[in-house]
Design a protein around this nucleic acid. Sequence first.
DNA 1: TTATAATGTAATTCG
DNA 2: CGAATTACATTATT
Lengths: 239, 239
Amino acid sequence: MLARREQPQAAAMVKLEVGLPGFDLDMFNPVQNIRPSSKNKRRFSDEQIKSLEFMFENDSRPESQIKQQLANELGLQPRQIAIWFQNRRARSKSKQIERDYNILKENYDALASSYESLKRENQSLRIQLEKLKTQNEKEQGNKTCESNRSGNSGDCESQNTSDMLDTNEKITFLFEGHDHMLSTENKSKNVENTDGDRVVLEMMEGTDGSLTSSEKWCSFESNCFLDESSCSSNWWEYW
Amino acid sequence: MLARREQPQAAAMVKLEVGLPGFDLDMFNPVQNIRPSSKNKRRFSDEQIKSLEFMFENDSRPESQIKQQLANELGLQPRQIAIWFQNRRARSKSKQIERDYNILKENYDALASSYESLKRENQSLRIQLEKLKTQNEKEQGNKTCESNRSGNSGDCESQNTSDMLDTNEKITFLFEGHDHMLSTENKSKNVENTDGDRVVLEMMEGTDGSLTSSEKWCSFESNCFLDESSCSSNWWEYW
DNA sequence: TTATAATGTAATTCG
DNA sequence: CGAATTACATTATT
């Protein structure tokens, strides 16, 4: 079966004897491969690439038979076809990761912007509430209407304890860990430091690089401000 | 079974290039391997890698002199050293992108969570405001105190028009484009489809893959709710 | 066992 | 040099 080992060896050996440093063998080219640009072996011709790309779009993981056919059509070894598809898939994947990063980044920024707006709005609401509260209390003080009842159907009673927070006590210390980022600028370029597996921290000369130290982030997370209040009626279902 | 794998290259190369000690022993020697022969054609020895990695940590782009010295020490050609560093930098970079993605993802999720919480809080505040307003109006109706003045220092006057929104009119249609995501699950694995440059959409057999279609996102963005209101005193500076 | 997907690595070419 | 390629190797899976 499989008559392995393509002829390239011969070429490689020759090359080695000549004294070239690469012990790679591939340069060999049975058929055409007239590269438009230069005297290059390696590197498939534009036409070959075009066909391969076309096939890849249709099926990134073709059957052996199709690969064989492609090999015949393009004058390449079946092995080369197989390898090309493998590499192409790997390339596709890493490209995809980069694109995902950019998309996610965009959405992060948008969300952060919305978050900030919402925060401001929240602050506005809080201030309004504060004022209304004060105003209410003043009015109640002026009226001195029957000041001790616990029902919730009266005219001048405080209805604001049935299914919501106690505005005066719980609301003023909400935002605490939400105020960073928004200017993070995780530029996905110019990285290069902090190698793959081990975490390099001490020996880096400040070459910018590694953006997120993963500590400036993630300091917010727990803002469960509703959990211990008397909110039991799921008012947010209204929305 | 065919005796495949030839590493004559390796042998030839070693003989040709140098004969420096320490190098290539594992090229000939099936050092404690499950697979006896057919070992590395390329692939530097663990020791070489170790030295290279160590140097890389210190400086990912060393001077020619240092590279030369490394070449001597490791029994490699200066060219090989240079290439190794180049490849190493490229690897480092793509690794970094992946890590950045994961970090960004985490932070996105955290921010989305915070955003949801904030939104709920906002809703709560809005409801409270509503109730207080109603209550206020009722009380004002009951009191029928001097009901037409525009100063802002009275007892039962409405103070809420000086530097804030008109609560009853502007507040109820705020959240409109903020209600998606939060369950996006951009799993950064298993991508592989949608090739690098062209966007493949029709011919994909549903192999999951490409996560964000970039359209489900980005539908929110403009929630400038404060711009046309009479807010001119930058109350958010208090925070 | 073979085949192959997935991942990593050495080397080459081009800009 | 960096980016993209090509070929090969290794490991895991089936």
